[in-house]
Design a protein around this nucleic acid. Structure first.
Lengths: 239, 239
DNA sequence: ATGACGATTTGATTCAGATCAAAGTTCACC
DNA sequence: GGTGAACTTTGATCTGAATCAAATCGTCAT
């Protein structure tokens, strides 16, 4: 299933983000009211299911998106099928590669999600006309670059144990903590996706998770719901 | 040795890049003549030796640079000493992280190099005043992001053989080809640095290189000078 | 030239994580 | 509520790259 066939969530007032400038800043926080109105007229807010491919690797796409809820994975696949997740995006991130039509990677909803879909031509125009928007997108690109480089260190130099701990830590930082040290969350990724993010196999991921469970570093419910009693413990393993 | 103690190459007219707008675009190509003159007044062109640390990981730096000649490696090191090169930069790349004072990585000259050194405050002001410069830097950030993600695939999913071929291919694309298929170049990195870029050990890198040599994929002179008779062959190994 | 030190190559062995194989679980769908 | 398919866990074995250990090569100062 792709975006075109996904459910339109609010059709009448497409609502790029009129009501959410403060909370969902990347695109909308940088626009004037007039610009927002124009953007609204040409944009849609959609609900997409987990697994929905928002942008396909190697394809040209005519729209950008802004994540309003849920998690999106950025993925590269090799001709022989090996694949690597190269980034996770959360609300309120912008999805799409400004200035380049063809995508070098796919963007897929990892969980059920809601996105605002903007026409590329219109947003490109607004980017060139609006230094503040350019700046917002530049900032996000720099944050993604920092994240990508941090992950390169994980991929190149950390052990399987450290990799899995790093992933749990990364996801945990996007959940709100229960207490000072304890955090609970649902993993947005399957074991296979975690493996593709960490450059490991499913089996190795599973073994490390059960090892952490037996050590009491985490509690696992239904394989997806994770409780971390002590984040410091997890961070320590991360190295 | 750090930048402050490096040789000032042209002291009298610091010459951010007046003479090189066309060729060395990232910063200078986006500025007006008046801006260039002001930037020149406060900038220096420096010659730095291989190994010179331009920015230290974890430190605050008060300047940006633009690479005019040579290769710069971006490196992250872990508390226990493991390290990962997370990017290579070539002329005319911009070095430094706009908007954030503290650097999450070190930038070190991999070869002898020349850089233009700009004061951070001045350039920050010019960035906010000059949408075209913002755009240039945004473009570079996006190019670096693409490169980082491509490399994540290499680190996470390619074999040692494919990794070494990928590195040779990457370096080769920055050298001008001898003929349609043949390219020759000097490696800007030692075996240890290549290992740190590929997430391998020195020994594995060396073994893969000699394997390629014995297979006739490359010729090696002095361990640093490489001749690739057939780039297609190399690309095929890359997978 | 000679010696010395660092960088690179080569060889022998080990080990972390992959692969192969088989149960368990979970959960969507009748 | 039962069934089947996909996902996850666990176990046994294998292997690619790491580690440990020596040579060999370069190169620079004497």
């Amino acid at each position: 299933m792709d975006v075109a066939s996904s459910e339109v969530f609010e059709a009448v007032v497409p609502l790029a983000c009129r009501s959410c400038q403060a909370r969902h800043g990347v695109v909308c926080g940088a626009l004037s009211n007039d610009q927002l109105k124009e953007l609204n007229r040409h944009s849609l807010r959609r609900k997409v299911d987990a697994g929905c491919e928002i942008i396909a690797q190697g394809s040209e796409s005519s729209f950008y998106s802004n994540i309003m809820r849920g998690v999106v994975k950025l993925c590269k696949v090799m001709p022989d099928g090996r694949q690597q997740i190269v980034g996770l995006q959360f609300a309120p991130d912008f999805v799409g590669r400004p200035f380049v039509r063809e995508s070098a990677l796919s963007a897929e909803a990892a969980t059920d999600a809601e996105i605002c879909v903007f026409p590329r031509n219109l947003l490109d125009r607004m980017i060139s006309e609006t230094p503040e928007l350019q700046r917002s997108l530049h900032d996000q690109a720099l944050r993604e670059l920092d994240a990508a480089r941090e992950w390169m260190l994980t991929l190149g130099r950390r052990t399987a144990e450290e990799k899995v701990a790093s992933l749990l830590h990364l996801i945990a930082t996007h959940a709100e903590p229960q207490t000072a040290t304890c955090t609970a969350f649902d993993l947005p990724l399957s074991r296979a996706e975690i493996a593709d993010f960490l450059g490991l196999t499913i089996e190795t991921v599973s073994r490390q998770m059960t090892k952490f469970r037996k050590q009491g570093v985490i509690l696992i419910e239904n394989s997806r719901h994770i409780i971390v009693p002590d984040m410091d413990e997890l961070e320590r393993i991360t190295a």
